[in-house]
Amino acid sequence: MKCDKCKKNEAVLNIFEIEKDGVKLVRHLCEECAKTEGIDDKISTPIVMEPCPRCGSTYDEVFEKMEFGCDECYRHFRPILSNIFKKIQNSEKFGGKVIKQVNEALLIKMKLRNLKKKLEKLIELEDYEEAVKVRDKIAKYEDELKIYENN
């Protein structure tokens, strides 16, 4: 493929532009034109790369559509991803937390919230028989929650 600018040399870089809802491939440049033009503020990636060994997603699929095919794509294309992520995420490193172990207290809190919503609704519908049952359940979970929180 020839360079889109000088139309002479072999193109080695893909140049992308960020749009509202994604990234668009704009053109292909050779090394020389890339240098003279200055592409620091744009996303650029090398043109040639093997497809992902796991799902077979090609370079074009991943970077023109901005769509990974599987988790292995991230490892396979890692060398050029930092550049992409710096542009679209303003960072190349995960700053979040890995949510590891199951937090029982959180689960109980969620159940309690749902039960309280249910109770409100039952009272609204004047189904007091069912409401009493839900109220007892809430009391049980609240006791359980206290145990977790005291530990």
Partner: peptide
């Protein structure tokens, strides 16, 4: 992934 956190199909959601 250690570097990118939770992996999503679009890079616009990767991480958290």
């Amino acid at each position: 992934d250690e570097q990118f956190g939770y992996l999503t199909s679009s890079p616009f959601y990767t991480g958290t």
